[in-house]
Design a protein around this nucleic acid. Structure first.
Length: 825
RNA sequence: GCCGCGGUGGCGGAAUUGGUAGACGCGCUGGACUUAAAAUCCAGUUGUGGCGACACAGUGCGGGUUCGAUUCCCGCCCGCGGCACCA
């Protein structure tokens, strides 16, 4: 019979789904295994050959764990909020839900076509109101803890996209999407205080031994914790300048101070300057620089404040104060002591402004530093600290997270604004009170003060995105929701906290709904928890479900080394503090996936049309061969250019198995050849180990080696079934088809992973290599546990060895048991 | 600039508590089958020299340690990824 995968693949896919083969059991006593893929954004352009790489790998892993006796939860979902869907929807004049659902259907079809065994009963979609009402619910926990704040900050405003972008959305000073210019604009924004968790986010990386070191390092760098000292310089302007430094011992070499142009301290000091006009001019110019400008030109600019100096309290000298934009107002105190001898940037500045350079450290010892000369750096640091009464300080690079977007297609904040403190205090007496932070969140607009009031979980349905005709950008800094009056104008009941667009008499006061929406990161910051309890309507998930399923055992995906994986950890830790989960980290093990690149080594992109569709490949070689190739192509974590070349090899491999199956089933042998049995048992061991460690390429290779070894031998049906079981995670359709052809019971995917029969592995006779003066010259066969004398006899009797030894003296004989003999002559 | 990862045949790659480099797959060469082709099967395939047995060289480059180095150490070169004036 010919091998025609197209004739049985669909049949099995439908059968598996109807049998609920991949449903996880919430009440099993078996050990659990929770495997999560980074869920995709269902774009309009459907999947290319790169997407399935990770999904196939986790599918193989999940099938292997299921066969090994685990209660496996392997679900899938959609990260469907965000700009592209909104833009497509505007273009097609349809509600974004229509766009999103169409794309999801397409993606789901593609995943199913590949035989990926997900538990679809737990499918989630971040844009489903039943899901995002829970995202809003979690936001309330941030709000309650004072972690959701409202600040007017300079944000990255992108006029073309009509929105504010996070730093992560900007690449080389331009928007990641579209490559448009980005400008700094002050705006009222929601901020999540991730900096309050910075220490824990660094420290708890220690709890993650099964994360790749490179991801942990990237996170440490991103959070950027540095430990140093803070202290003040006295100035002749009568104002003290606080500075932060990690090199306190270099204070003797501090020859000037530098202030960030936009810092508060600069504003206070410059009225005393003799060259105020020059300074104001500099501040204005540097304020107009975009991030891109700053990256393009690394040349230092700055201006000295004339008529004001600061005291270096160590050397007791007066030093100049400089305003320069290489110092950032957003880090440290917005002011530094400049030590040009020991800091490259300060050195450049000193050169531009011709300021003095004093070397105070040489070969790790202090010099030119008065009483400190000769001391080590650490001793000097401690002494200076005492001398000037500096305080130890920790500082972080990571900033609080700008968490709002001026878009329509995102989760609305569960917040309404009421006018005036009286109204706020009135509402605080209602059940809303226990959801309020210690410090009220408020802002002023045209002399009116507005207070943020959370919408209680039971009334969150009032905060669903409205179904409206137009949801285009307003063209102002505000988002589309600001232009929809039935969204903006509402009422809140001061007794109950209920929100409604109709005032129903007493206790109802006017309120304004928040018009910003959350960024796409919101829904993806907790979704793995929703899989555990996907239909819960009263909470994001139950405590019991998270106790049973959490944490995720294996989380697999590409990219997002910092942003998503830090946000997810941050949300998780907040939820731990809120008592929603009781484990500190969401992902026990992280497997980082390498991208499939286009054949030319560049990124696959729709625009360039440099990729192939999975449909085409499935048509050509079948889903199983495609799956095999996706895993065989190279190490999981390594980026690899796509090439069709190896596909045919995987297809041939399956055809050979198909032919062997026919022979085996017909022959009905009771016992295999010993060599074949040995080979299969060795392979069982190897494949299991390799899948567990995500080395899928060598697992496939070892199955190929085994097939080459057994295809000419007598193989019993039982042994062949063992082999088939190894193949099942990789080629589920064909394995199932042959399984049923051999009249086996049930599905192969619910059968047990074969046990290694150590007795069948014949590894007593081994090849021992012989090296003479470091060169490989010959091999002998020997018993694995032969003693040295026996080996010595065999070696000296070997023809090749005799030839080399003729006329020479054997100086040394080294035997590494079972492996090698090294002779020195 | 800083941090991380990597460099092995024509190609994807395998092998690292130091022990036969190039498994497996693709491609290529020759052969069998066929009227012919496809498919399949068999043999070969790191380079150089040799009809051949075989010899020498060989894991980015230069050194070192070792009986033995793709693996460890020192100094470079190149590529990829991330961060980027963070005091």
């Amino acid at each position: 019979m010919e091998f025609k995968p197209e004739e049985f693949e669909k049949k099995w896919q439908e059968k598996w789904e109807s049998l609920h083969l991949y449903r996880a059991d919430d009440n099993s006593t078996a050990p659990r295994c929770f495997v999560v893929d980074m869920f995709p954004y269902p774009s309009g352009s459907s999947m290319h050959v790169g997407h399935p790489r990770g999904y196939v790998a986790t599918d193989v892993y999940s099938r292997f764990k299921r066969m090994s006796g685990f209660n496996v939860l392997h679900p899938m979902g959609w990260d469907a909020f965000g700009l592209p869907a909104e833009e497509t929807a505007i273009l097609n004049k349809e509600y974004p839900t229509v766009t999103v659902n169409r794309n999801i259907d397409k993606f789901k079809l593609q995943l199913t076509m590949l035989g990926l065994g997900y538990d679809w009963s737990r499918e989630i979609n971040t844009t489903d109101p039943k899901y995002y009402i829970q995202t809003q619910r979690i936001f309330l926990e941030f709000f309650k803890r004072g972690l959701a704040q409202n600040k007017t900050v300079a944000v990255n405003w992108c006029p073309e996209l009509g929105t504010v972008l996070a730093n992560e959305d900007i690449v080389d000073g331009k928007s990641e999407r579209g490559g448009y210019p980005v400008y700094q604009q002050p705006m009222r924004q929601w901020i999540l205080a991730i900096t309050q968790y910075a220490d824990r986010l660094v420290d708890d990386l220690e709890l993650l031994p099964h994360w790749p070191e490179k991801i942990k390092t990237a996170q440490r760098n991103w959070i950027g914790r540095s430990e140093g000292h803070e202290f003040e310089f006295v100035t002749t302007a009568g104002i003290n300048v606080p500075v932060f430094t990690t090199r306190l011992e270099t204070l003797p070499g501090a020859t000037f101070l530098v202030l960030a142009p936009d810092s508060e301290i600069t504003k206070k000091i410059i009225p005393s300057a003799a060259n105020l006009a020059e300074i104001k001019n500099y501040i204005e110019i540097s304020g107009q620089k975009t991030d891109l400008d700053k990256q393009l030109s690394n040349e230092k600019t700055g201006v000295i404040i004339e008529g004001v100096t600061a005291t270096n309290s160590f050397s007791n000298t007066q030093i100049p104060i400089v305003i320069a934009d290489y110092v950032l107002s957003s880090y440290g105190t917005g002011a530094i002591m400049a030590v040009p001898a020991h800091d490259e940037r300060d050195a450049e500045m000193a050169q531009v402004l011709k300021l003095p350079v004093v070397t105070v450290v040489e070969a790790d010892k202090m010099i030119n530093a008065g009483s400190l000369s000769g001391e080590t750096i650490l001793e000097a640091r401690q002494k200076v600290s005492k001398m000037i009464n500096a305080t130890s300080q920790k500082r972080f690079k990571i900033r609080d997270w700008v968490f709002s977007r001026q878009r329509f297609w995102g989760e609305p904040f569960p917040i309404v604004w009421v006018e005036g403190q009286d109204n706020y205090e009135l509402i605080a007496k209602s059940p809303v009170g226990k959801w309020l932070p210690k410090e009220p969140v408020s802002y002023s607009n045209e002399a009116v003060e507005y207070f943020a009031v959370p919408v209680l979980p039971e009334f969150l349905s009032a905060m669903r995105l409205p179904q409206v005709e137009s949801y285009q950008a307003t063209g102002t800094l505000e988002g589309p929701l600001a232009g929809i009056s039935e969204w903006v104008n509402t009422f809140i009941n001061t007794e109950t906290g209920e929100v409604s667009n109709e005032s129903r008499g007493e206790n109802w006061i006017p309120a304004l709904r928040e018009t910003n929406t959350m960024p796409q990161w919101a829904g993806s910051s907790w979704y793995w928890l929703r899989y555990m309890d996907p239909t819960n309507e009263t909470a994001p998930f139950s405590k019991e479900s998270s106790k049973y399923w959490g944490p995720v055992n294996v989380y697999a995906g590409a990219d997002h080394a910092v942003a998503h994986l830090i946000y997810a950890r941050f949300w998780h830790k907040m939820m731990q503090d809120a008592g929603m989960v009781d484990f500190p980290e969401p992902f026990e093990r992280l497997e980082f996936l390498g991208y499939i690149l286009a054949a030319d080594g560049t990124k696959i992109s729709k625009r360039k049309g440099n990729s192939r569709s999975p449909e085409d490949i499935v048509k050509e070689v079948g889903a199983d061969a495609f799956r095999l190739y996706e895993t065989f192509i190279g190490p999981f974590e390594k980026p690899i250019p796509w090439s069709d070349n190896g596909l045919i090899g995987c297809r041939r491999f399956l055809e050979k198995i198909w032919r062997l199956a026919e022979t085996v089933i017909e022959a009905k042998a009771e016992v295999s050849d010993p060599a074949a049995a040995s080979s299969i048992n060795k392979t069982i061991q190897k494949v299991g180990q390799d899948i567990e460690t995500f080395k899928f390429n060598t697992a496939v290779s070892s199955m190929m080696i085994c097939l080459n070894e057994i295809q000419k031998s007598v193989v019993s049906i039982a042994d062949f079934k063992s082999y088939l079981a190894l193949l099942a995670p990789f080629a589920p359709h064909m394995a199932e088809e042959i399984w049923s052809m051999s009249k086996a019971e049930g599905s192969i995917h619910l059968s047990s992973w074969p046990k290694v029969d150590a007795k069948m592995i014949n590894d007593n006779e081994v090849t021992v290599a012989i090296q003479i003066n470091g060169k490989h010259r010959s091999n002998i066969m020997a018993s694995r546990d032969a003693d040295e004398a026996t080996i010595r006899g065999l070696v000296l009797n070997d023809d090749a060895v005799k030839k080399y030894l003729a006329g020479s003296e054997l100086k040394k004989f080294i035997y590494v048991p079972g492996k090698i003999v090294s002779l020195i002559i």
